[in-house]
Write a protein that binds this DNA or RNA. Structure first.
Ligand SMILES: [Mn+2]
Ligand SMILES: [Mn+2]
Ligand SMILES: [Zn+2]
Ligand SMILES: [Zn+2]
Lengths: 142, 142
DNA sequence: ATCTACATTATAATAATTCTAAACTGTTGA
DNA sequence: TCAACAGTTTAGAATTATTATAATGTAGAT
């Protein structure tokens, strides 16, 4: 979903009613220069900061899942207590900072294309994700 | 932790009291031909099947985390509602079957060694994990 | 046998997520 | 224009994995 657009029309085009909650979520998620990573809680905070009205947590969950299903958000595979989403839906990989719990994008030049030589009968590959876990390099490990 | 051994001695060597719960967990986890993947719930079921006595869920959680910290178990990064562990602690990658929620090991020949060309100042790489998500190849997507 | 530090346990607490069912609203077509 | 309907939001409850608590039990040392 490209930025700087009429989200009302965009939502209609993909068959979603352009409610004010959805439009606001579109603005917060897609109307910006750079893509970013977020948890549901991050997103609720961002919306609350930009809106004077409240938005229900259930609506945020529902809408994030709808956007994901429609292909406008991607869920990142980290095992954490919470789910991480990405407004960058292209195939790309991540660094995960275990100190700060932050995700950082890799660009194409950072990691060679992964070539999968195994195939599982009757199954097709849906995604290939590389997660590079990093942490503080301090020698002072207590 | 190698199979077919005296787990009482092994546990002592790594500074853990060889309680009967821990010994049983060792047997279930490490006394077998092949490594495997499991969730906490899987493991509780396996233990219950092999033991007539009950084991507390808290003990299973605690002991799995101790074994992980000591390096005898590895946690796999999938985002799922539950955590997956691996008795294969060597660096290796996984297929994740989204239909059955099963993990399948890749061997070295399946995926080339990943070369990371980016580095993040002050951070060291702790792990590099590739997750290949697969699902049924049916054309009949309703 | 007794002591004590460490373990196990049942249970409660926590926290992310999903479910529910009632109230609300965008859209349609009479 | 406006009633009707289907889709949507919502607060709160339910679910579920996980962690914390605190009482009880026990392995190993003396
Ligand atoms: Mn979890
Ligand atoms: Mn989750
Ligand atoms: Zn990303
Ligand atoms: Zn594995």
């Amino acid at each position: 979903m490209s930025k700087n657009c009429n989200f009302i029309e965009k939502l209609r085009e993909i068959g979603l009613r352009p409610t004010k909650q959805r439009v606001k979520m579109c603005e917060v998620l897609f109307n910006r220069e750079k893509t970013f990573h977020f948890t549901i809680n991050d997103l609720v905070k961002m919306i609350s900061d930009e809106m004077n009205e409240k938005i229900s947590l259930a609506t945020v969950y529902n809408t994030v899942h709808v956007f994901q299903k429609k292909g406008y958000l991607k869920e990142i595979s980290i095992n954490s207590d919470k789910s991480y989403f990405d407004t960058n839906t292209s195939a790309h990989h991540h660094f995960y900072d275990e100190d700060t719990n932050e995700l950082i994008d890799c660009d194409e030049s950072d990691i060679d294309k992964i070539n999968i030589r195994k195939n599982i009968t009757g199954k097709k590959i849906n995604s290939v994700e590389v997660l590079v876990k990093v942490a503080s390099d301090n020698q002072n490990q207590k």
